[in-house]
């Protein structure tokens, strides 16, 4: 009886989120088939007009490149973080501080650093490594530098957990049995930490798909991504039908990928092959 009563505590929060969040999201998504008139014309436009195809291609390419860079940087970082206890606290702080800093502030910082006469270009010129400033901003390079900076922690944390959970005797054992470092890594450590790696990678990819601030500030003017287009359509073009259609595509992709990664993590531990 008392337990039933405590469930009433859910009412205000659930009612609030339903009213201010869930119903509006539903109403927005509905507009994909109801705006400007009922029908599938928005989805037909999405399929047929080349502007949307290039939009989706840009977004997927940027997200994939970001994910790959994050994995390559996060693995050695998480490895040192997990296997050198004296560095763990310092490196956690190094990841945590940017993790909790405003994305707007960080994207602005990269704008300052990567400008034609910014610090990065000036240093490279002074060192004589380049003759003229590199184009580091308002293109894919800028987006990638900024997005990896924001999303790197999302791979570092799950990987750190996975490496910590490994039996520390395994790698010395592999070495003892004659495996070189590369072989031991590929056959022992990588399979054992794969679940953490995949989880972090999926998270990064999914988040990158919906990113708005960093591509808008650091990306090329013609190299738009889905989130930027949704914002433009809502606040400038008033094209709610297409905004809703793109939102639906983005949301479905997000939920499918997150659901798939959850299934993967929950499935029984895979054994390293061979």
């Amino acid at each position: 009886m008392k337990r039933q009563a405590s469930r009433l505590l859910l009412l205000p929060g659930a009612a609030f989120v339903a009213t201010v969040f869930a119903l509006p999201v539903g109403a927005l998504l509905l507009r994909s088939v109801s705006d400007p008139t009922w029908g599938l014309q928005n989805f037909r436009a999405l399929w047929e007009e080349p502007v949307y195809a290039s939009l989706i291609r840009n977004t997927v390419q940027i997200s994939l490149a970001t994910t790959v860079c994050c994995i390559l940087l996060a693995y050695p970082f998480a490895h040192v973080m997990a296997t050198r206890p004296r560095l763990t606290r310092l490196l956690t702080l190094v990841v945590l501080v940017p993790f909790w800093s405003s994305i707007l502030v960080r994207s602005f910082a990269w704008m300052v650093l990567l400008q034609n006469n910014g610090i990065v270009n000036q240093s490279l010129l002074r060192l004589g490594l380049i003759d003229q400033p590199l184009e580091l901003i308002f293109n894919r390079t800028g987006v990638l530098i900024g997005m990896v900076h924001v999303l790197l922690p999302f791979v570092v944390f799950p990987l750190y957990g996975a490496i910590r959970a490994m039996d520390p005797a395994l790698m010395p054992a592999a070495a003892c049995l004659g495996a070189g470092p590369i072989r031991a890594f590929l056959r022992v450590q990588l399979p054992l930490t794969l679940a953490g790696l995949v989880m972090g990678a999926v998270l990064v990819f999914v988040m990158a798909l919906g990113y708005f601030i960093t591509p808008a500030l650091l990306g090329g003017r013609r190299d738009a991504v889905i989130a930027r287009m949704i914002q433009l359509q809502v606040s400038q073009l008033g094209d709610w039908g297409m905004a809703a259609t793109l939102s639906l595509v983005l949301l479905v992709a997000t939920l499918i990928l997150l659901g798939a990664s959850q299934l993967l993590v929950r499935s029984p531990a895979r054994r390293p092959a061979g």
Partner: peptide, 13 residues
Amino acid sequence: IPHIISGAAIFLL
């Protein structure tokens, strides 16, 4: 849910 979708939806409301 991506904030861009949340933002558009809450704006609609």
